[in-house]
Design a binder for these strands. Structure first.
Lengths: 251, 251
DNA sequence: CGGTGTGAAGTAGTTCACAGCC
DNA sequence: GGCTGTGAACTACTTCACACCG
């Protein structure tokens, strides 16, 4: 999964578990597909399969929202789409700004999945004056100087950061100062934000590293390559978890 | 957090909890930064702050890898960098292919964070013959026809899918058939794969939807807009979780 | 002392299995 | 008969708090 989060750990919003919230968009996507094919109802089993989870989990998840199904029948597709959309807050319009219009920022600006879910790209912002004017995804790129004005004029509360790592914290602070309270961070840095501001992090290289970990396991335990980095100083014993770390790197 | 995962739930790789694995790249990044500033040792407290977690969690995480710290002192930065890299399998070279060179694929191809961690982009693949030859990030884009040959010639075991949703499952199947066993999926679809293949999913719009959920809470419970979608038929009672769902949408 | 390493306690999330309703 | 909704059991993860060691 994409990863990281920074959350007030108390006040778990109105009793819906975080893990459930994270799956609602998945259900919503599956339901939307069914809706487009004019399927009137689904069972938890079918919907779970489409969303890639098991049916007990799905039923438990829905039970936090209310009793929206019909025993012996299943769930009404249109009705559930509406309920989940409302729960997620997608029945309203969310203006977002994207800061940092490099390759990734441009990809985000062009990404159709935003508009289709109540998210509206209110502005594209970049620090490079040379980009100003050049349209990306049919919108003009505006200069960072305008950031505060754009945020307040448009009532933006969600910001996307796709700048280089070095610029991210500073951009974050300006966004927050201007009134943004939710941030989606693509820059490979830990952002620090005041309480009350949510940060979600998407980190491409972290995802690959997690895959590499599992991939390595599949390949079987090969001998580790020689250990180039000695420890602080001579030590007596290093206990590896269960017997790797041959005899190479410590002592 | 980026999201989704598809894992053999048994065989939790050699006893390192999945949640810990997901944080190792974070620690590694923080350690690398310290290493570049030639800091010789860190305490769990300092490192935890840099990685954005609490120190108890960090110490527990490291305890799964082995006893790599020194009581009263902290952790040797270089040594830990090596241990975590090795644990994650980053001491070896991982050739990856990126399939689907649209905006996002191009962004990924240009992303520096891959190369710096043992990941090498072995090929860029796209279905559009018009793209063949046009270099992206200094590499030629190759046609999908070559996919199988590229995978086996380069011994690729990790594939990145950044195609449109409609093409993703088919691409996935070809990758798997050709020998790929780990997939990072950016397409907004649930991929189905045989056992033994890992899929991680990064979904931009899901992350925004999760933010919107929390954002909505902060704004306070406003009246929900009128409910445009009636349920299956007239019903007696709908119990919302604790008293929303005014009187509008059911019955 | 100071800071790691870790059992024990606490909390969150998942799965089971079945009562209850359509 | 079929399928939802949910307590109860279980598993995973986190946090506490302190023994132990450099």
């Amino acid at each position: 999964m994409a990863t990281g989060r920074t959350h007030r750990p108390a006040t778990r919003s109105r009793g819906i578990p975080e893990a459930t919230v994270a799956r609602l968009p998945l259900y919503l996507r599956a339901l939307t597909a069914l809706s487009e094919r004019s399927v009137p109802t689904v069972s938890s089993e079918e919907l779970a399969a489409a969303a890639g989870v098991n049916s007990a989990k799905l039923r438990k998840d829905f039970s936090y929202l209310g009793s929206y199904g019909t025993r012996g029948v299943g769930y009404d597709v249109e009705y559930l789409v509406y309920q989940i959309s409302r729960e997620l807050g997608l029945t309203q319009d969310w203006p977002v700004v994207i800061v940092g219009i490099g390759n990734l920022g441009a990809a985000l600006a062009n990404y159709g999945g935003f508009a289709s879910r109540g998210f509206r790209v209110a502005a594209l912002i970049d620090a490079d004056p040379a980009m100003a004017g050049t349209p990306v995804a049919g919108m003009p790129v505006q200069h960072t100087d305008e950031l505060e004005k754009i945020i307040s004029d448009n009532g933006v509360s969600i910001g996307v950061i796709s700048t280089p790592a070095g610029a991210a914290q500073q951009v974050c602070e300006r966004l927050v100062a201007a009134g943004v309270t939710s941030i989606l961070n693509f820059a490979p840095t830990v952002l620090s934000v005041p309480d009350g501001v949510d940060v979600r992090k998407v980190d491409l290289s972290i995802e690959l590293q997690i895959l590499a970990f599992h991939e390595q396991r599949k390949a079987g335990e090969d001998a580790a390559p020689e250990g180039p980095v000695p420890p602080v100083s001579a030590k007596q014993q290093r206990k590896g978890p269960d017997g790797d770390v041959p005899a190479v790197m410590p002592a």
